[in-house]
Structures are given as structure tokens and as C-alpha cells.
């Protein structure tokens, strides 16, 4: 690991433009050990007062330093945002969830093998160097939203649930506070896969805001190579309400398949007002998968996403 200066922020303003932020450290230190991240100055924000989950306009305001465990087990989250609780509990391990924070989880980097291997060319790590994943091992890679320059996926489970819940991110910067919908927070790779979010250098995430819970049933289904302690190959976060035998409203987001937690509102429109039948689900899946493209090693994700999508919709609408 490259040597660095360590400093501890005493307040939010002291964390702005101060250096590379460390919260739980579970992603940053991992990448520093690999030589992928090489900050000269590391700013510890763990003592800041950003650890509260507060009631906020019918929903919740989640401090950036709330741990993944504390968020998952919060009574309000378990009761009203089951999809989020389940997504968090499906991620990493008990130990890691105790360390991982809400802000850090949103900003964790891809698990692309070549991104983590500094001997490989990688446009995300070193813009313009090429993409070793193309034509390489692509089991973890994207089928939606990728570009010719980068086909990596965003690995977070939490962010997928938050995308379905219409969360927004509260950001503090030199010019003040702004709130960005999660749908606009992550940017697609295009020709600059090193730029992953609209967060500017030196800015701090202070909170995530959840609007009031949607009606209906919620679930998070994660398909992976082993039953626990593995990243998603495909995941589906769903909130669906059914009234008089037809789907009233559906909010759906998908993990493991794209450079950001994936949401496509046309899929939801195609479900609304329809009977929850296999034909309805397949027609919506056709819209979801219209632009899907496999890379070889991840071709299986196209049928797997369709089946997982159908299974989740079946579960959420059955007997409703």
C-alpha cells in the first residue's frame, strides 16, 4: 500500500476538499491494498454526527454513516421498507455490514477482476488504457447500459433497493447542500467509465432520503454463485400493489446487470393496469431486455434476469 497521511474530520466542513474519505473502509482499504486506490491523504469521517435515522416528510433520512447493519435492523425499515432491509441483509457478511456505511456502500467500486488487477488495462482505472474484460472473463459483467469502453457492473445490493424506493442523495459541497435523485446520481460509463456519479471531487454524501413507503408488497431476490456472502449475478428489488385483480403500481430495480442500479419506467408502465399473468410479465420483460447484450461469459444473465423478474412478480402478486 502506498503511504498516506491520515487525518480525522471534526465536522462536515472539515471533510470537504480534505482528501480521500474513509468511512467503513471495507472497499477503500481493500482497493488500497491492491494498489487500485492510491490516495495521498485519507480523511476519516467516522466521528461525524451522521449516524442517525430520522423520520422525514413521511419517509426517512438516513445519515451517511449509518451502518448497513443498523439500517437493515431498524424497526421502521423492517416494517415499511422490507425491500431495503432484505437487500442489505443479503449483502456481504455480518462483520462487513457492521463496518460498511450507507455513503460508502453507494460509492463502492465495481468487482470487475481487471479493475482490481493493476497489471491489466482498464479504462475505469486508467482512462484510455483499454478494457481487458472485453473478450475476457465476463461472468460478473453488464448486459444493460454498458459501453464499448467499459462493461462493469455496480455491485451494491442496497442501492438497487433504494433505486426502487425513489431515494435521493443529500450532498454537501463547498457551495452548499444539494439533493440528487438516485436515478440521476449514477452516470453511465460512455467514454469516461472512470466517472461513476455526479459527486464532484471534495464533496461529501451526508444522507440518503427515502420518500414515504409505497403501498403493496416488497421483496428483494438475489441470485448468486453461493447461497450467502457473494455478490449478485442478478437481483430484483420489487414493490408491487394489486387491486381488484390488476396490478395497480409496480416499482422495480435490477442489480448485477448494469453499471448502475437499473430501473426502466417503461417496464413499470407495461405492468400497470394489467392482470398479473405470465403473458403480462413476459411482455414487460421483453421491454426490460430489449437492449440487453451478452459478452459471452455473462450471456446466461439474459434468461436469468427474465426468470428472476417473473418469479418476483409472481411472488408479489400471488393471492393479492
Amino acid at each position: 500500500m502506498k503511504p498516506f497521511d491520515y487525518a480525522r474530520a471534526q465536522d462536515v466542513s472539515g471533510a470537504l476538499d480534505a482528501g480521500k474519505i474513509i468511512a467503513g473502509g471495507t472497499n477503500l482499504l481493500d482497493l488500497m491494498k491492491l494498489g487500485v486506490e492510491t490516495p495521498e491523504r485519507v480523511v476519516d469521517i467516522t466521528r461525524l454526527d451522521l449516524k442517525r435515522i430520522e423520520d422525514h416528510e413521511g419517509g426517512l433520512r438516513i445519515g451517511a454513516l449509518v451502518s448497513n447493519s443498523d439500517l437493515a435492523v431498524d424497526d421502521r425499515v423492517r416494517r415499511n421498507y422490507e425491500v431495503l432491509s432484505r437487500a442489505l441483509l443479503s449483502g456481504a457478511s455480518g462483520q462487513l455490514r457492521n463496518m460498511a456505511t450507507t455513503g460508502g456502500n453507494l460509492l463502492q467500486r465495481t468487482r470487475c477482476y481487471y479493475f482490481q488487477d493493476v497489471a491489466s488495462p482498464c479504462n475505469k482505472r486508467e482512462p484510455g488504457s483499454g478494457c481487458r474484460a472485453k473478450g475476457g472473463a465476463t461472468r460478473l459483467h453488464a448486459i444493460l447500459g454498458a459501453s464499448e469502453h467499459c462493461i462493469a457492473t455496480h455491485p451494491s445490493d442496497m442501492a438497487v433497493a433504494m433505486q426502487a424506493l425513489d431515494a435521493s442523495v443529500e450532498i454537501e459541497g463547498a457551495e452548499g447542500t444539494r439533493t440528487v435523485p438516485l436515478a440521476e446520481f449514477y452516470v453511465l460509463p460512455g467514454d469516461r467509465p472512470d466517472i461513476e456519479t455526479v459527486l464532484k471531487p471534495g464533496e461529501l454524501i451526508t444522507a440518503v432520503i427515502l420518500p414515504a413507503p409505497l403501498p403493496g408488497r416488497q421483496t428483494y431476490r438475489k441470485v448468486r454463485d453461493r447461497a450467502s456472502y457473494a455478490f449478485a449475478l442478478v437481483s430484483v428489488a420489487g414493490i408491487v400493489s394489486v387491486k381488484d385483480g390488476v396490478i395497480e403500481q409496480a416499482a422495480l430495480a435490477f442489480g448485477g446487470v448494469a453499471p448502475r442500479p437499473w430501473r426502466n419506467l417503461e417496464v413499470e408502465t407495461a405492468l400497470a393496469g394489467r392482470e398479473p399473468t405470465r403473458e403480462t410479465f413476459d411482455a414487460a420483460a421483453d421491454i426490460l431486455l430489449a437492449g440487453a447484450e451478452g459478452q459471452g461469459g455473462n450471456d446466461f444473465k439474459i434468461p436469468l434476469l427474465r426468470r428472476t423478474f417473473r418469479a418476483v412478480l409472481g411472488e408479489l402478486t400471488q393471492g393479492a
Partner: peptide
């Protein structure tokens, strides 16, 4: 593993289990 992938470094910090390999001592 030194990368949070195995749990053999688990210790308890303020009552909670954590991976000591992904924690800086100075924090």
C-alpha cells in the same frame, strides 16, 4: 485473505464483530 473475504481476522469492536484486516488501527 487480508481482504474481508474469509473472516479469520474477526474481532469484536464495541460489541460488534468486524474484520480487523479492513480496519486501520489508527481509526
Amino acid at each position: 485473505c487480508d481482504h474481508g473475504q474469509c473472516g479469520s481476522c474477526t474481532v469484536i469492536a464495541d460489541g460488534r464483530r468486524i474484520n480487523s484486516c479492513l480496519t486501520l488501527a489508527c481509526m
